[in-house]
Write a protein that binds this DNA or RNA. Structure first.
Lengths: 336, 336
DNA sequence: CTGAAAGCGCTAACAA
DNA sequence: TTGTTAGCGCTTTCAG
């Protein structure tokens, strides 16, 4: 690694002033003879000049950095797709990404303060599962965009998965494939789940079907779903399957629930999809693709959200006015 | 947000020089009257002074940042535990973490160059699955530590999971629980898998058992395992279970393979753990804990590696001389 | 024990 | 059209 070379170095070698070099390299609008500009540029290339980002940052008060506050990278680790595609697009704009995870009990404000100190060009808040977060008053103005979550009163632009639409579409898909008796295993307390349920109900209505309320039940005990919550999937399935009228399709709150449904259904000797179809949400590939039969599911738009967020932060795209819903994709496999 | 206040501001208000303030705040060894020091400190607190990191960085040529080059955040997303715990310890030392993912075809060198420009205090390389990477010559000197992977000739200090030991321990566990006929579904082409297999063989030897070579078979077709590789789990299980002598335990290359094994075993009416025990590696909780019965597995030490790496980069701990192996933890559930 | 001042690399206001 | 120079906020050397 050769010693870093500065504007000064170039200026001296060429016998011009620093400001001329700076102008030639970074500021098209500064007028000067084409000759000079060319000479400067070629020497800079030859020497491998690279601007010192820190010096520039000090001068301008902004660093080419985007801060990202993440909450719960731990809970839904597969959401790291968001970070990845975000990083990918930002990189093409010479922006780096500074992450900090909030889940360990640190407040949003503290995370924000830490990021701020590096003078990022912008800060986003990304949640690892779709929910509504209560931003402290002070944080509102500092956060440009929320990804996979939204602020309580939609005061901050946000990108969220189109849960309702996904619920509608997968239900319609089931109906179109001839299923009428559709059960739904919900994720208690999660917005994602209740929106998905709304979608399901809307699809029923559209097709003049009525929902059997006994077939809408929680997948876990307790007020809010989590990976540690006590599962009641096996019991629910057992009851449904013992009843005189059985569902012919089970829609699951997410792929992990579907995983349990497979086990429960096998246990009572029910064939998928012969006797009952199973469909789900998320497309957590390591599960969905490996189940037997492979699981039909609505893929969360993590990658798309990351990409769009990147474009917004890079200034290539306008922020949504309030909340923008990004559609899921239906992944057809063999469980329906 | 109040206008940032600088050393200068404090100096003026107190009628002392900038250097005195700087010394009082950050340099214990600069001698001055206790009186002055106290006055300065209390005013700084009152005004909420925070050093300008960029200015400091420019002066010293180093920023309070650790760069992390990640490859394939996508392949093993649950490895994000590494990042999380790394971030957690670094934060307590006022260090931020700058991530960049290399998987999208960008070379290591390019990723390095981008990180370098922000003058990080150190750079680590983290892989999302355990393998040996070929670092370009230029990169050797720049990377302080490799996490979850190692350099081809161990020229760079590294932290890797103790695969062999894990293979040994889980096998011994199976043996101690009375299992003698243990089969192993390998992950072709992965170092992790072949080390785990070595461990298994060593455990057999220790207990004067001999391995049935027909019971060591790949979980996927083709030369190297991946999530997209064509699975042959169902076939292998079917053959084993149809043979006159059946295994009484199946050790799986990882939890995703175990997931398939559950399906395949159910399909042929075999009870877990009554007829055969199943054990595995990774502890991908969303799978392992939700399987029926819950899966006994060796937990990858992602969190520990992240923490240790953090301590090393924060200067709280010495770098390993070459490769340090971090032990797995046995998670006992109900499948054995 | 404390003050003054240089200088990190860059940008932009001001001069020539 | 080009050159000179003043800072950005900080640390540190050198005088006093």
């Amino acid at each position: 690694m050769q010693p870093k070379i500065s504007l000064q170095d170039i200026a001296i070698r060429l016998g011009v002033s620093v400001k001329t070099v700076s102008g030639a390299l970074h500021n098209r609008s500064i007028r000067m003879s084409e000759e000079t500009r060319r000479k400067i540029r070629s020497l800079a290339d030859e020497l491998g000049y690279e601007p010192n980002l820190i010096a520039r940052g000090m001068r301008s008060g902004v660093m080419p950095i985007i801060g990202m506050i993440g909450d719960g990278l731990i809970t839904q680790p597969f959401a790291s797709e968001i970070v990845r595609s975000f990083d990918n697009v930002l990189r093409t704009h010479d922006l780096s990404i500074l992450v900090t995870d909030i889940a360990g009990g640190r407040g949003i404000e503290q995370g924000l303060a830490e990021l701020q100190r590096l003078l990022p060009r912008g800060i986003v808040y990304a949640s690892m599962y779709h929910h509504v977060v209560a931003l402290p008053a002070g944080a509102r103005g500092m956060i440009e965009l929320m990804i996979n979550c939204r602020e309580a009163d939609n005061a901050v632009p946000a990108l969220v998965p189109a849960e309702r639409q996904a619920g509608f579409n997968v239900t319609r898909y089931l109906i179109e494939r001839g299923r009428r008796d559709i059960a739904f295993l919900t994720l208690p307390g999660l917005v994602a789940s209740s929106l998905r349920e709304h979608g399901l109900r809307a699809a029923f209505e559209t097709h003049d079907l009525i929902v059997n309320e006994d077939w809408i039940r929680p997948a876990t005990r307790g007020a809010t779903y989590s990976d540690r919550a006590r599962s009641v999937v096996r019991e629910q399935i057992a009851e449904w399957m013992a009843a005189p009228q059985r569902p012919d399709a089970i829609l699951c709150g997410n792929d992990r629930v579907a995983l349990e449904v497979y086990g429960a259904l096998r246990r009572v000797g029910v064939d998928i999809p012969g006797d009952v179809a199973v469909a789900s949400f998320d497309n957590q590939v390591e599960i969905a693709a490996r189940l037997d039969p492979p699981l039909t599911t609505m893929a969360l738009p993590h990658r798309e959200m990351g990409r769009i967020a990147g474009e917004i932060l890079a200034g290539q795209r306008n922020k949504p006015d309030t909340v923008e819903e990004i559609p899921f994709r239906l992944i057809e496999r063999a469980s329906v």
